[in-house]
């Protein structure tokens, strides 16, 4: 199996580059959305999957990226590419701001604090003058490469595809680095990790910040693709959908969360006509998933990310930080 892994991955990437020429614009849009979710889920995967910190306000980082780019491009007429580092910086700061007070909290408190932060960001976006209040920001200019202005559907598809690939590689490399192993260690047993000399606080903050930067990357591209953004796109439900994709696919598993992202976006498209049912179906599937297959559709097979542990008998010995 293993020797086919690289060629098949390569083939998949080639297919992804050819696909837009074969699809109609409707499915191209759906696929673009899937790729946005792939980027977002990779970011959340670092926080929830690797480090085991449940974040219910992840859409806030998506919002930070989108609004930073939107404001800099409309009010200050920056180039899109220049707004990216600023968006990353703001997102990292936001990640640290959210992370710092939650460091000492147990996982369930952590969940609710991140949820509260997510709501606060949404309320700020709805009420502040600079973010265009409830109607949001519109007329965001298109990004340009040299003299070529990216405007077509395909342009944005390729842009987000490249970002998705970069983020997957980055998250994969991070997961297999010293930092990634430390994150998993913190997830598995925080006290033991600390006893082994892992700087718990620094690494948790790093996890938040990295996740935030990836989320904001998706947000920045979202802003220029849509050319209009409104607070509604960054609601709690958005955070839940991203989390759902990560959980369905398999916490900490890169191919898993890619599949999860695809499922979460494509399934509702296939279920058109019974649209009202989709969140109900998602809710029920979350419950069923947790009861019968908590490790997700495509769990990690890595030794360091022990799947069996998720079914541990002792509630205190968990992947959460509930010690």
């Amino acid at each position: 199996m293993k020797k086919y892994k690289k060629p098949s991955l390569f083939l998949l990437v080639i297919c992804m580059f050819i696909l837009p020429f074969l699809l109609n614009s409707y499915w191209l849009d759906v696929l673009t959305l899937v790729l946005f979710y792939v980027v977002l889920t990779q970011g959340l995967n670092i926080v929830v999957g690797y480090t085991g910190l449940l974040d219910l306000g992840y859409a806030a980082f998506f919002a930070v990226g989108a609004y930073t780019t939107a404001i800099l491009m409309t009010t200050f007429h920056w180039s899109f590419w220049l707004t990216l580092p600023v968006a990353f910086l703001f997102a990292a700061i936001a990640g640290v701001i959210i992370g710092t007070p939650t460091l000492r909290l147990r996982s369930d408190y952590l969940a609710i604090v991140t949820l509260g932060f997510g709501e606060i960001v949404k309320i700020l976006a709805t009420n502040l003058e600079i973010t265009g209040s409830a109607s949001g920001i519109y007329g965001i200019p298109r990004p340009a490469i040299g003299s070529y202005i990216m405007a077509s559907q395909k342009d944005f598809y390729f842009l987000i595809l490249i970002v998705a690939i970069i983020s997957i590689i980055a998250v994969y490399r991070l997961g297999h680095s010293r930092i990634g192993r430390a994150w998993v260690y913190i997830r598995e047993d925080e006290d033991a990790a600390e006893a082994m000399g892992i700087n718990r606080i620094k690494l948790k903050l790093l996890s938040y910040a990295t996740g935030a930067v990836i989320g904001s990357f998706a947000g920045s591209i979202f802003a220029v693709k849509m050319s209009a953004i409104a607070p509604l796109s960054f609601s709690f439900l958005q955070s839940v959908m991203i989390l759902l994709a990560v959980v369905l696919g398999g916490l900490g598993s890169i191919p898993g969360v890619v599949i999860g992202a695809a499922l979460v976006i494509i399934l509702p498209e296939l279920l058109r006509g019974v649209e009202d049912w989709r969140y109900l179906i998602f809710g029920v599937s979350l419950v069923i998933m947790m009861i019968f297959r908590p490790q997700g559709i495509w769990p990690t097979k890595n030794n360091t990310e022990d799947v069996d542990d998720i079914e541990t008998e002792d509630p205190n010995q968990s992947i959460s930080i509930s010690k």
């Binding site: 998602f282 029920v284 509930s322």
Partner: peptide
């Protein structure tokens, strides 16, 4: 899930919440 890890049961609770909300919407 009483004996399952915290994260699992929290995610379950979110699932229950979604289910309740959208079944009453339907």
């Amino acid at each position: 899930l009483l004996l399952a890890p915290r994260l699992s049961i929290l995610i379950t609770a979110i699932g229950v919440s979604l289910s309740l909300e959208y079944s009453s919407m339907i």
